[in-house]
């Protein structure tokens, strides 16, 4: 199934990019600016700037993937001969692909950065855990819930958008805190700062658990159903 998803994503990447802009998800690109603006205040070495961009890049890719290919199936595919269970398997495979690809990229870049002594192993591990949780939460994105005001109420999804936004803001906040506390990510955290970071990591874990346990089944149930995922409750003709 992963092969099918990969092939579908390869064929639909242009439409995915278009939908990012169409649905107002262009805010992803602000990520490119937020941290560097702060960074240039104290970064005196180009390698440090590159380190931060190296960390930021997989996060951006992860968020971009979650918006390009939200949990949904296009109408043509709904018309194709697939059982609900097969559609669910497709969606679950697609979801994990969108989580694993940026996580793997993050690990790959992080390993190089650890190898070149640009970040410490401890910082790397903390960021891997945090970013994986970030990808897990943000990939439960359901486009219709953001686009239609009464969607949550109609589909028993109360609090869905709120928790999605919380998970995303917190993920970004965590990264900014890490960077601020560490200054240089290669310098070991001070014990007080590490305690705060550990606490924030626990909070992020709790948020991710809330998002996954609270909405996974509901999002999948909606996404495999044409009527709920694309139409909502209106009438087409």
């Amino acid at each position: 199934m992963v092969g099918i998803v990969f092939r579908d994503y390869r064929m639909h990447w242009k439409e995915g990019i278009q939908s990012v802009f169409k649905n107002g998800s262009w805010f992803i690109y602000l990520y490119l600016m937020i941290v560097p603006v702060n960074l240039f205040d104290y970064a005196d070495k180009i390698s440090e700037v590159m380190t931060y961009y190296g960390i930021l890049f997989p996060i951006m890719i992860g968020l971009l993937l979650s918006r390009m290919y939200s949990n949904g199936i296009n109408k043509t595919m709904f018309l194709c001969p697939l059982e609900k269970e097969e559609r669910k398997r497709y969606l679950v495979s697609a979801y994990w692909l969108r989580v694993i690809v940026p996580t793997f990229l993050f690990i790959l870049i992080g390993t190089v950065l650890v190898g070149t002594h640009n970040i410490s192993m401890k910082s790397f591990l903390i960021l891997v855990v945090s970013e994986t949780m970030y990808f897990i939460a943000s990939n439960l994105y359901l486009e219709a819930a953001y686009q239609k005001p009464d969607y949550e109420k109609k589909h028993n999804l109360s609090g869905y958008t709120f928790w999605q936004i919380v998970a995303q803001i917190f993920g970004l906040f965590f990264m900014v805190v890490c960077i601020s506390f560490a200054g240089d990510l290669n310098v070991p955290f001070q014990s007080m700062n590490f305690a705060i970071i550990f606490f924030l990591l626990v909070v992020q874990f709790a948020i991710t658990i809330k998002v996954v346990l609270g909405y996974w089944e509901k999002v999948m149930r909606i996404a495999i159903d044409y009527e709920m995922s694309l139409v909502g409750s209106g009438k087409e003709e």
Binding site: I4, M11, H12, E15, M77, P81, L82
Partner: peptide, 16 residues
């Protein structure tokens, strides 16, 4: 899928 050729569309969806 608009962004791909007729052949690619046929192979993509015909597979199902």
């Amino acid at each position: 899928t608009k962004g791909i050729s007729l052949e690619e569309n046929a192979r993509l969806y015909g597979n199902y």
